[in-house]
């Protein structure tokens, strides 16, 4: 393949060889190259610097760069593994790998735990869950009385915090999620199975031989 030169890839800070990224993730080389087409599009939507900043991430998710959102920000922060305020191509592929249908449940459970552990203490605390619940109510039409919010938190911690110490640790989370598998639905993007179909133009920019892909 490789019918068009893709020298421009070197302008992408953090660009990594698709063969290497494929070896580290569930994706094939062709799928990594298709993800690069998506990455190029998102990373050039506000500032064409080969990196995705939070504004571009929010714009891609909501079609509105001004929309602050606790949940999208949290996902961005977990994608931004180097804590630089931007996502490079390697970060992007490795993070999306978690959302692939073929990725292990263990990886998905670990990522989902970190998603809810807002202050990165290794525990999901009641205050964090309350903060997320209130953020959800703030962004939706849903109205709940304070007592109802507290009742939801009581029920949640009664079920999830099995040692009743007021916080959910990783082993409690693993058990809780095994009893409530629907909680992991957000951790799988069926779309990732068809990524080469969604971005067929990757073929024109491929640097890899068909045999390797």
């Amino acid at each position: 393949m490789g019918c068009v030169s893709s020298k421009g890839r070197r302008q992408f800070p953090g660009y990594e060889d698709p063969v290497f990224l494929a070896s580290q993730t569930t994706f094939s080389v062709s799928e990594v190259e298709a993800l690069f087409e998506l990455f190029k599009s998102i990373s050039s939507s506000v500032i064409d610097d080969g990196l995705i900043n939070k504004e571009e991430f929010l714009l891609a998710l909501f079609k509105n760069r001004k929309k602050e959102n606790l949940f999208a920000s949290r996902i961005f922060d977990l994608f931004d593994v180097k804590h630089r305020g931007v996502i490079d191509f390697g970060d992007f592929v490795r993070a999306l790998h978690i959302f692939h249908p073929n990725t292990s449940m263990e990886d998905k459970i670990n990522f989902s735990f970190r998603l809810y552990d807002l202050d990165n203490t290794g525990f999901i605390e009641r205050e964090e869950v309350k903060q997320m619940l209130l953020a959800l109510l703030g962004e939706s039409e849903m109205k709940l009385a304070d007592e109802t919010v507290e009742a939801i938190l009581d029920k949640t911690f009664l079920e999830a915090d099995t040692n009743q110490d007021g916080k959910i640790d990783m082993s409690e989370w693993q058990y809780f999620v095994s009893k409530n598998p629907s909680l992991l639905r957000i951790m799988t993007l069926p779309y990732l199975r068809d990524i080469t179909t969604a971005f067929p133009s990757f073929v024109f920019y491929s640097e890899v031989d068909e045999a390797a892909a």
Binding site: L38, S41, I42, A60, L61, F62, K63, N69, L70, F71, A72, S73, R74, I75, F99, L115, Y116, V129, M132, L133, A135, L136, E139, S140, T148, A151, I152, L153, D154, K155, T156, E159, A160, N180, S182, L183, R185, I186, L189, Y191, I195, A198, F199
Partner: peptide
């Protein structure tokens, strides 16, 4: 009325967690 849903079920419905939108180019 007893509460039937746990907090995480509600939270996981936030559109901010819907990464499908990333693929709508």
């Amino acid at each position: 009325k007893p509460v039937s849903m746990n907090a995480f079920e509600l939270i996981s419905r936030s559109p901010g967690f819907s990464l499908e939108n990333l693929f709508e180019r």
